Computed example of a mutant assay.
Amino acid sequence: MNKGTGREPQGSRLTVLRQSTLITVCVYAAFGLVGAGVGWLAGLLADWLVTLPWAPLQGPAELVVSLPAPVLPAAGAVAGLVLGLVAQYEQLVVRLSDERVALTRKGREQEFPRDAVATVFRDGGQLVLLGHGGGELTRQECDLDTGRVADAFTEHGYAWADADPHQDEFRRWVPGAPGLPEGANALLKARQESLEKKGSSDDDVEELREELARLGVVVRDEKRRQYWRTFHKAGPAAE
């Protein structure tokens, strides 16, 4: 999927949806304060450990105690700010115009022309764009206010649904489920293993979702259970 140019026709209205500056500042402040607090507590723990000759980790504890008092809270605050930066990097940014919609998350931008998008809706904490053939153009984690997102899409002429119009078509996947295209069961099995594996990458799960979409299968997750439906495949819609 190619990155969009970010350019709109002259005079086109553009709406950008992202977390407010206030919320972003609060996130950074919270992570920074928590990190500083953890650093301070680590210093207290080290002070206590060095008084106990039988306690483990005496060497690291003595090293920590030898550091100037402000070092650990400062280091914790920096670590907290880095985590805040990661959290911001993972937030969804939506750019809407009457001609196209662009979604950016984790440094990846997906762009779709207006006439490729049939319906938009929220599925729990995810924003979903459906194509005219019933397939999902994209499904993205979204912590933006639902009403704000719905209003923006509606104002630009997109069809917004309060629920998935195909929700009654989903069936729970079990190994060897009938009715699936050739190769889909193998992909669903691999995806199920990724969902259940501790420390597995979300990228692997999403990559397998995209592979299933190429076969004409939509998949959604509920508590590590997969539910699927098929759709009529059409040509690629993203630019």
Rank of each mutant, 00 (worst) to 15 (best):
D123K: 07
A75D: 01
V38R: 01
R13P: 10
L14Q: 13
V217K: 04
R171E: 15
E111C: 13
E222N: 07
D98T: 08
V219L: 00
V93A: 03
E182P: 06
D203P: 05
N2P: 15
E169Q: 15
L187R: 11
F121D: 01
D162T: 04
G80A: 01
K197W: 05
G131D: 08
A46N: 01
G107V: 06
Q167G: 07
V219I: 12
P70C: 00
A184T: 05
E182W: 12
K197C: 06
P178F: 09
L127G: 04
V82P: 03
G235N: 11
V38T: 10
Q140R: 15
A184K: 03
G39N: 08
R214G: 11
R139H: 08
R105E: 10
V120R: 01
A152T: 09
T5H: 12
N2D: 15
L96S: 03
A237K: 07
D115P: 06
K3P: 11
A118L: 11
E182Q: 11
E206A: 15
A186I: 08
P113H: 05
T138E: 04
V205M: 03
D98S: 10
P181D: 07
G157T: 01
R214T: 12
L129G: 00
V71E: 06
L180D: 00
A234I: 12
A177C: 03
R224V: 07
P165L: 02
D151K: 13
E62T: 13
L57H: 09
R108S: 08
A87S: 10
W48V: 11
A77T: 01
L188I: 03
G76M: 01
Q58S: 08
E155T: 15
Q58P: 02
D168R: 13
L130V: 08
R114Y: 10
A29T: 05
G76V: 00
D162E: 15
T146P: 11
D164T: 11
A159I: 07
W40L: 10
A186Q: 13
Y227C: 07
A30V: 12
L127I: 02
L188T: 07
F31W: 14
A161R: 12
A77N: 01
R224H: 14
G84W: 02
E193T: 14
L17K: 07
P113M: 08
E90A: 14
L92G: 02
V219A: 12
G39L: 06
S20P: 00
R172H: 07
P9M: 04
